[in-house]
């Protein structure tokens, strides 16, 4: 081979090698080419739609890239002068009509399948056998998730749910836009202040499912994670009984510790473990309800019980007393 051809062949081989390595790695890790393995009927149907679209887009990809590479190879210059023209073809109406109409048909096929799956993705099942769906309120805050259960229990960043039970989540926000997203249990629904969005899931396996905030919400967006803890009905009922006692700790970890550190030692926010404000109920309540400068109003919308739970936890576990000399 003459040098330029060899060089091009080398580049091609390198690129193909890189692509192969990438594919191998991806398959070895069992992921990355489709959304995560679904564990809820709605997520399953989204994945079905994804696969259906992949079939058609995959075929178009092969067709377009294949003919591009084929034409590049077949009609290359081969030493012809620049002035040598190809046949002066200005178009072909019938051909152009075909490649306008066929995509329309393909898109109609895609849309048809998606609409067929849509009710099973979007509509909350009535779940009559279970006595209607379990309704959980999701309140998004900078930078934590607050879950309120039908009987008033509250948990932070950890949503507990019984397995094989339809759970409807009603999502809103107390400050900026967030988005509720647990990939294995369905798609994203935004949490927008002043609005309520809904989604649902029915987890088919006991286990923990990871969720993340899907809409950029500020400095700790990356830390705004949630866990859905799917339990047996018995474990779930038992957990509901203990939820109240764990609230203060949940609030501390979810709404305070991300900025101020788990011991209150400071991090993005200042060290608060020695700040006497922690023991001053009224002053602290005003601060956390209204925010100040860079501190967001983390307790916006909290009930009095929630505030008291946090205050009790702070006094007991976080406050280290004022340092000597102050």
């Amino acid at each position: 081979m003459p040098p330029p051809v060899r060089r091009k062949a080398l580049v091609l081989v390198l690129a193909l090698g890189a692509a192969l390595a990438l594919t191998a790695v991806a398959y070895a890790g069992n992921g990355g080419f489709a959304p995560p393995t679904p564990h809820s009927p709605n997520a399953k149907r989204i994945n079905d739609s994804y696969v259906w679209i992949s079939i058609f887009t995959g075929a178009i990809f092969v067709l377009v890239e294949g003919s591009l590479v084929w034409f590049i190879f077949k009609y290359r210059r081969r030493g012809r002068p620049r002035s040598a023209e190809g046949p002066q073809i200005h178009g072909a109406t019938r051909l152009e009509l075909i490649w306008t109409a066929v995509p329309v048909l393909i898109l109609a096929t895609i849309a048809g399948f998606v609409f067929y799956k849509l009710p099973g993705i979007q509509d909350v099942p009535s779940a009559k056998a279970e006595g209607g769906p379990l309704v959980v309120q999701v309140n998004a805050h900078q930078f934590y998730w607050q879950f309120t259960y039908p009987d008033g229990q509250i948990s932070i960043d950890e949503l507990h749910a019984p397995v094989n039970r339809t759970v409807r989540v009603d999502i809103t926000s107390q400050d900026v836009d967030h988005s509720w997203w647990v990939p294995e249990l369905g798609g994203k629904f935004d949490a927008i202040p002043g609005h309520m969005t809904h989604t649902w899931f029915k987890a088919d396996q006991v286990g923990t499912y990871r969720g993340r905030c899907g809409e950029f919400c500020g400095v700790f967006h990356a830390a705004m994670k949630a866990v859905v803890d799917v339990q047996s009905q018995a474990d779930y009922t038992a957990w509901l009984g203990t939820a109240g006692s764990a609230l203060g700790r949940g609030e501390w970890q979810g709404s305070c510790a991300k900025c101020h550190g788990l011991q209150g030692q400071g991090g993005f926010g200042p060290n608060i473990s020695t700040n006497a404000l922690l023991t001053q109920g009224a002053g602290l309540e005003q601060l956390i309800r209204q925010g100040r400068n860079e501190m967001p109003p983390v307790a916006h919308g909290w009930s009095n019980d929630q505030v008291q739970a946090l205050l009790a936890y702070l006094k007991k576990n976080v406050y280290k007393g004022t340092t000597s000399g102050r």
Binding site: P35, I46, K117, G186
Partner: peptide
């Protein structure tokens, strides 16, 4: 070559149930 890939991934995003999974 590359714009075609961008166009095709756009079809996934246009199908809104799939978009719920991959948006943002």
């Amino acid at each position: 070559a590359v714009f075609t890939i961008g166009g095709l991934s756009g079809i996934f995003l246009a199908a809104f149930p799939v978009d719920w999974q991959v948006t943002d």
